[in-house]
Nucleic acid binder design. Structure first.
Length: 660
DNA sequence: GTGGATGAG
DNA sequence: CGCTCATCCAC
């Protein structure tokens, strides 16, 4: 295209050898200095950042194959009512796809193994695998898959004591390898840990040239020159390949470009990723595919390059040629309305088509809010972080479409009970992992025939005993508010979907004692503190870091804040003098004093962390990129001085019900 | 607090 | 497909 591109905003100087065609990708080979290598907490700006996305191949199908002990090379599908929700790779060879009807699938492959998902039968407490479940009496249960998913996630965590894990869906997770890789680099190349005496610029000198890399056995390295085979496709997989194969490295066309330290980082991450994937296959049986690149979005894209049971690596040098021909609507978050709008606005379909659009042009259209994100994504930049999520989701919903709609209000409680049974089971199981899990609210949704879905919610009692009965009766109450009773109605009823769910599910991150108090039967909990039932250990890879942070601020601010009354529900911070109170919905709710105290302590810790974060962000002018959050209006993220970010992501109570 | 939109798998 | 999940936003 023509030279409208030159109107680039801000000061992005084409680094070094930007050829004409690569001018758009401006930071593929940043200089890495000793200072950068040695510093911690560079976050998304770390020039050695390495992210992986790992997902399980045809996960639901694999779950059933393993549960039933079926030969993995046999074609297998998972059925839900009349259609398929999962197709394993052997079955895909017959041309069977998701959302096909089973009839069609069986025609294509007579020897197909068909497994129906587990279902709850009305009245049953647990889901089971039944031959011919009836959609008018049963409800689908995905519990088994959730449990298996947890197993896999846990293996990631165990395999990576110092890496961040973000569960992105039931079958995939992002892994931030930056820290473990940095540790490994320093271990393998100890000469990097000291700035050489003769370094021209001291710590700001660039690192010496990196060692050559043996990519063999680390995965498929995407070509630097060859254009991407517009990814997607049905992966060309070795027939009946069993064992993990991360040793399928293709020839690397290294012709043009010399190795960088970032490539070394990628290679080490690939090694670690391969080990973990191997372990997962050995211990729980699932094969996985992974993508390794410098950020989340590229990792995700790269993972789909070759499936199943393999991993791919995207070097920075390979980014331009991989991205340019890519249909941009395949990019995460551009698959929907936004992507469509952009496609139509500019009559574009590939990333390359859009590279000539300036940021200003993007912003002038209605994409204002997301423009920066889009602009950067197209250029291979993604500043979103791998955010450790709670092992448990923040919400938990059970829903049922009703082929035979509810016509009378009195039929509601029946389905509510079925849904409540599922919720009770899921909460009970979740609490086996995280003992003091507390759902803050219960929500009931009901959808009338085709349009309106309405909902009612209410605070859910703070109780250990979240039995079917408790949930169901709370649900019944909401039902009454929502649809009334048969007698009270004047309009006809036709409910085609009912859903019951918890929201605000959080972990009490406080301390052993309050958890014990919470777990004990309400009657006996008062004094018998003797038995310390060890809470199942919960991973916290950042103890050190956190302790360090607290120390840092404590030393600055004096230790404990000033004394406050014994039964206070607040404390006063020495640093800022603010009075920090427990949120209203916690006090006076019949909470035991011990819990209030622990909650206060948690608040204090969080508040201290907040001060630390403020200091930190002053040092590094932090800015976080993520698609939707990124609204220019919401505060100049890059203004260090005036910023008064409050502990936003959930004021005050965040740590108490920390997302973890 | 409610309800819709949007996007993901 | 049918069933989940998360997040944002206007009211």
């Amino acid at each position: 295209m023509t030279s409208t591109v030159s109107a680039k905003p801000v000061s992005w100087k084409g680094k070094g050898k930007a050829t004409n065609s690569e001018a758009d990708f401006y930071d593929l080979n940043p200089m890495i200095t000793y200072r950068l290598l040695h510093s911690r907490n560079l976050g998304v700006k770390d020039p050695l950042r390495v992210i992986a996305l790992c997902d399980s191949d045809a996960f639901y199908a694999a779950c059933e194959q393993i549960r039933l002990g079926i030969d993995p090379s046999r074609p297998l599908v998972v059925q839900q009512w009349d259609s398929l929700i999962a197709v394993n790779y052997p079955a895909r060879k017959f041309g069977i796809t998701r959302m096909e009807k089973i009839k069609e699938a069986k025609k294509k492959c007579p020897e197909l193994v068909v497994v129906h998902v587990a279902t709850y039968k009305e009245g049953e407490k647990e889901p089971g695998y039944w031959e011919n479940p009836d959609t008018s009496t049963h409800k689908v249960s995905l519990d088994h898959y959730r449990r298996e998913s947890m197993k896999v996630i846990r293996m990631f965590q165990e395999g990576l004591p110092s890496g961040e894990i973000e569960k992105a869906s039931i079958d995939e997770a992002f892994i931030d390898f930056t820290r473990p890789v940095r540790e490994e680099i320093l271990r393998r190349y100890p000469y990097l840990s000291q700035v050489p005496a003769d370094a021209p610029n001291g710590a700001d000198s660039p690192l010496p040239p990196p060692p050559p890399i043996m990519w063999d056995g680390l995965g498929t390295v995407l070509p630097v020159n060859a254009p991407s085979p517009v990814n997607s496709v049905i992966a060309v997989d070795a027939p009946g390949d069993q064992g993990i194969s991360y040793d399928d490295s293709e020839g690397i066309d290294n012709g043009d470009d010399s190795t960088t330290w970032h490539d070394v980082a990628l290679a080490i991450a690939a090694e670690l990723m391969g080990k973990i994937r191997h372990d997962i296959h050995m211990k729980v049986g699932y094969t996985t595919s992974a993508g390794i690149a410098r950020n989340k979005f590229l990792a995700k894209l790269t993972a789909s390059y070759k499936k199943p049971n393999s991993q791919s690596i995207l070097r920075n040098a390979a980014i331009p040629n991989y991205l340019r021909p890519l249909p941009f609507q395949k990019i995460r978050f551009l698959g929907g309305k936004l992507g469509k709008a952009i496609a139509e606005e500019y009559e574009a379909s590939t990333v390359g088509d859009l590279l000539s659009i300036s940021l200003g042009q993007l912003m002038q259209r209605k994409f204002g809010e997301e423009s920066i994100w889009v602009y950067e994504i197209l250029r291979g930049i993604d500043r979103s972080e791998v955010k450790e999520k709670s092992a448990v989701n923040k919400s938990m919903m059970a829903s049922k479409n009703l082929p035979n709609p509810i016509m009378k209000a009195s039929q509601g409680p029946h389905w509510i009970r079925v849904l409540a049974a599922e919720l009770a089971l899921r909460l009970r199981e979740a609490r086996e992992e995280m003992p003091a899990l507390w759902p803050k609210t219960l929500v009931l949704h009901a959808r009338q025939s085709y349009d309106a879905s309405r909902s009612k919610q209410a605070a859910f009692p703070f109780t250990r005993d979240a039995s079917v009965d408790v949930i169901a009766s709370a649900g019944d109450k909401l039902w009454k508010e929502l649809v009334g009773t048969d007698n009270s109605r004047t309009t006809p009823l036709k409910i085609t979907n009912v859903a019951l769910g918890f929201t605000g599910v959080g972990v009490m991150e406080v301390g052993q004692r309050s958890i014990d108090a919470f777990l004990k039967p309400p009657s006996t909990s008062k004094e018998a503190q003797g038995t310390d039932t060890p809470v199942k250990r919960k991973r916290d890879s950042h103890d050190d870091a956190q302790d360090a942070r607290r120390d840092l601020v404590r030393r600055k601010s004096g230790s404990d804040g000033e004394a406050v009354p014994d039964r206070a529900t607040y404390f006063v911070c020495n640093e800022c003098g603010k009075r920090i109170s427990l949120p209203g919905d916690l006090v006076g709710d019949g909470l035991e004093q011990v819990i209030v105290k622990e909650a206060l302590e948690a608040l204090r810790v969080e508040h201290t962390d907040f001060h630390y974060a403020q200091e930190l962000s002053k040092e590094l002018g932090d800015s976080v990129g993520s698609p939707r959050k990124f609204r220019p209006s919401s505060g100049e993220q890059t203004q260090p001085g005036t910023k008064k970010r409050k502990p936003k992501q959930s004021g005050g109570i965040a740590k108490f019900f920390a997302a973890k």
